[in-house]
Design a protein around this nucleic acid. Structure first.
Lengths: 175, 175
DNA sequence: TTCAATGTAAAACGATCACTTTACATTGTC
DNA sequence: GACAATGTAAAGTGATCGTTTTACATTGAA
């Protein structure tokens, strides 16, 4: 595995498991199996490393959401949660830990949310033949966020509940 | 104002604004206008201070949710978000920053979520004359969490959207 | 075979971390 | 007027923070 990939994936799991601020450079270098000099050569700074981690996660996440129905969308989220664990949205967590004061991080968060939002809008347009409005899409988004958050303390089943609810809303809007 | 109250309220706003780990003791003592000796006399430790802050917030939050309809529940959340700001659920943020590894914090989070959950169950039972099931209540919970999370980057309007959705779900279950 | 690139190990940087201690001032109470 | 309680200011604890530096090994291409 490429050394930069190894760093970013080691960092992602440490950040996810222990939080961003609480994870020090020492633990990162140790987990990635490299010297701090090499880490800084590739990452530039800790904030930049966080941004890179989020950026990679964004790609991986949206690739999983490459579906064309609300049902499949929430199935994809359920898969993600079961495979990657349910510790909440890593983007919102990074944003919260840094108070929204780190531009690199705030921007990646905003870009990620914009990506999810446009994917949902696309699916809704597809499933309702354009009958679905902006409000329906936002309801689906809220269920999506809610499932992610609720899964932290109620487990992956919460995502299934959100799925049933979302599917019903779309059905009602299309009929 | 009582000195302990002052500490806890100063700590709450700093934690909310800048994150838990990123907020040091120096900043806390400065904002609360007291020496570190006094802080430790009252709080015991930083983790304990976090737990106390969350515990007080839990009381204040649930007091606001003393309503008897889903509509009023989300109106209360909307008020909260407009008054206190929308930086996400502080309990989940504390839990995430500490990786769930600090018992005092994990317990306060769990207690808070249990409180919200039973409040929602109570409202659903009330509004559906017992016709509403566990699944409906969980859908409302997910909308509640989703509104809180979505409001971070889409503002308080997301809560209004969640409200309309929740009210509709309850209506459909009661008719 | 030399040179630049890329890595390592480890020490050092000053700052800040959570937390404790020492020494002293102000109170209200018996 | 002695005493315990409760506060302050400020220095000191050792550990850890993010980051840089020094010194050296390995490697692949010119």
């Amino acid at each position: 595995m490429d050394i930069k990939t190894k760093l970013i994936s080691a960092a992602e799991s440490l950040f996810d498991r222990h939080g961003f601020t609480a994870t020090g450079i020492d633990r990162l270098t140790q987990a990635a199996g490299m010297s701090s000099r090499t880490l800084y050569k590739h990452a530039g700074s800790k904030h930049s490393l966080i941004a890179k981690v989020l950026s990679e996660r964004d790609k991986r996440f949206l690739r999983r959401l490459d579906v064309s129905s609300v049902d499949a969308l929430f199935k994809a989220l359920e898969d993600w949660v079961r495979v990657e664990g349910c510790r909440g949205c890593l983007f919102l967590r990074a944003y919260g830990e840094t108070g929204g004061d780190v531009p690199e991080i705030a921007e990646v968060m905003a870009a990620h949310k914009a990506g999810v939002w446009s994917k949902i809008q696309e699916i809704i347009a597809l499933e309702t033949n354009g009958r679905g409005n902006e409000q329906l899409a936002e309801q689906i988004l809220i269920l999506f966020e809610g499932a992610t958050a609720t899964a932290i303390y109620r487990g992956a089943d919460a995502v299934a509940t959100a799925r049933h609810c979302a599917v019903r809303l779309v059905k009602q809007a299309s009929s």
